[in-house]
Design a protein around this nucleic acid. Structure first.
Lengths: 184, 184
DNA sequence: GTCGACATGTAACCAGTTACATGATTAA
DNA sequence: TTAATCATGTAACTGGTTACATGTCGAC
């Protein structure tokens, strides 16, 4: 016991989603998109291969479901061992820092090599995207705010909201500084 | 011309850093850590293999430098073609959304499966890390604020500052909500 | 009747990580 | 003299992405 064979994080994400009920790979991919996808988004092929591993480790069970209208599917369910492994990971006190990949910030960093208008346009586009996200988050908030069942997801949503707002304010600051610099 | 053979983003990151001067793979890795590393951090082996590709594409040139005290090294320089490719990428109006991987937020999302104290402790650790980052950013800001040469890097720094502050505020909110919930 | 969205998954590839290798210098 | 850090890089592995495959249903 304590056989610490750390899964890739995607594995835990899947186990976590499976605690909400039996799902197929397709279901999981969809479920992720609308929830944890904002801070953890596995590709679908990744979901499928990870599911195979979870089964082989005894962390999930597989069941074939035949359908008439649609392709047959395999649905998965967490086992007690799977949930134990998940809990162990969750309670592990090590807090990995988040990792960000932002091609856009990279471009800004090298802004001196960009055309003036190209940079301005991209910053504005970035702002638009942040506003889109913010609207999406607000919409979700309307639905889950105050719902005890969504207490923890709501916390992560609040984080998303804070970041989207910070991004919008930042783009305004940048646009201001660029204009001011133009004047010099 | 316009031979659009899109490099992986790491390739552009390296080309960008090389515009500041001739560097070895080791130098590049170090340089990235203190600057673009906050939003784009290639592993060193990735830097080396990408350099090989850049040379083979004619985007960089390689030069052997012998040293007595230390291992010999190969230093790299951008070619005009390399800079052109970089500029093309920079000016391309497509703005890719940033991608975030946050095992921590994933844990919070599944907080209902965590032990009370474990969650609290990890949120506090998260806050600590955000404060560390904030301090680091403030220190960098002291050095580069107002320096025209660092105008664009400074913009990205401002983004980092905004995010670090948002994270700290968010953790405080979370801690508050957790406590309040405890009472119920 | 064709085109896009829903539904389910596999295979091939590549980006990126971890582990390995090696030697010199400095601090304890 | 042993360990840690600087300095430079390669090899082996794996997580994750893109492209491929296939069939149904609804909309136009």
């Amino acid at each position: 016991m304590g056989e610490e064979s750390r899964l890739p994080t995607t594995g835990y994400a899947i186990l976590g989603l499976l605690t909400f009920g039996e799902m197929s790979g397709y279901d999981l991919t969809k479920a992720a998109q609308g929830s944890v996808g904002f801070f953890w988004s596995p590709a679908k092929s990744q979901v499928y291969s990870e599911l195979r591993r979870l089964v082989s480790l005894g962390f999930a069970t597989e069941r074939e479901v035949e359908q008439q209208d649609r392709p047959d599917k395999r649905v998965y369910r967490v086992t007690p061992e799977g949930e134990a492994a998940l809990r162990e990971w969750l309670n592990d006190p090590v807090v990995e820092p988040e990792q960000i990949k932002s091609p856009f910030l990279l471009k800004v960093f090298f802004g001196h090599l960009m055309d003036r208008e190209a940079l301005g346009a991209q910053v504005k586009e970035w702002r638009r995207q942040a506003e889109d996200l913010l609207a999406q988050f607000r919409e979700i908030e309307r639905h889950i705010k105050g719902e005890e069942a969504y207490f923890f997801p709501y916390l992560t949503l609040r984080c998303g909201l804070a970041h989207a707002r910070a991004d919008i304010r930042w783009t305004d600051e940048v646009l201001g500084r660029l204009e001011e610099r133009e004047g010099r």
